[in-house]
């Protein structure tokens, strides 16, 4: 239900004309309505959304440099901020397993569902690896890690990731998995 409402409200926000000043309340109202309905905490979602806003701002700046003026660039930025905030609420409020179930209900291909689920599962262990390795790199040097250090970190992560895939596959085959 939360996913369907997210899709409906986001689609409604995206349909609002860019230049209509009077319609600017719709994106804000949709975001607030979804916040109330989702039951997710407000500030963590704001923090998540704020991290994504620079990308919207870059396009907003390109818009402005391109000679657009008046309400249109601001309208687009407001719509974007509203949908970004609702997406942050969606991810805070809906467990990953429900998102996968929704994709299954949409009849997404099995191979994609498998890859998507594996990716989510592996991501957190890789994220921990990245954090600990970055901490170690910073502890050993006064300057921030450069391209060379980061490249070797990325290749170590890739190798570790593929080795983990081998181990997981062996464990799954041992438990009778057939894909």
């Amino acid at each position: 239900m939360k996913i369907k409402l997210y899709l409906a409200l986001s689609a409604a926000v995206l349909l609002v004309p860019w230049a209509g000043n009077l319609l600017w309340g719709i994106p804000a109202a949709a975001a607030l309505l979804y916040w109330k309905f989702s039951g997710a905490a407000f500030f963590p979602a704001v923090r998540r959304a704020a991290a994504a806003l620079p990308f919207a701002l870059l396009i907003f700046i390109s818009n402005s440099l391109s000679g657009f003026s008046g309400a249109a660039p601001w309208g687009a930025l407001l719509k974007s901020a509203s949908v970004i905030f609702m997406t942050a609420l969606l991810f805070c409020a809906v467990p990953f397993s429900e998102i996968v179930s929704f994709l299954k209900a949409l009849r997404a291909p099995v191979v994609f569902i498998s890859v998507f689920s594996f990716m989510y599962r592996y991501f957190f262990s890789l994220k921990d690896d990245i954090s600990s390795k970055l901490k170690a790199l910073k502890a050993r040097s006064r300057r921030p890690p450069g391209r060379r250090e980061l490249s070797s970190l990325a290749s170590a992560l890739l190798l570790r990731s593929f080795e983990r895939a081998d181990r997981v596959r062996a464990a799954m085959l041992a438990r009778g998995w057939e894909a």
Partner: peptide, 12 residues
């Protein structure tokens, strides 16, 4: 699992 691992790496 290999594609999943590659996707996790791309994401991470």
């Amino acid at each position: 699992p290999l594609l999943g691992a590659a996707a996790a790496w791309v994401f991470a």
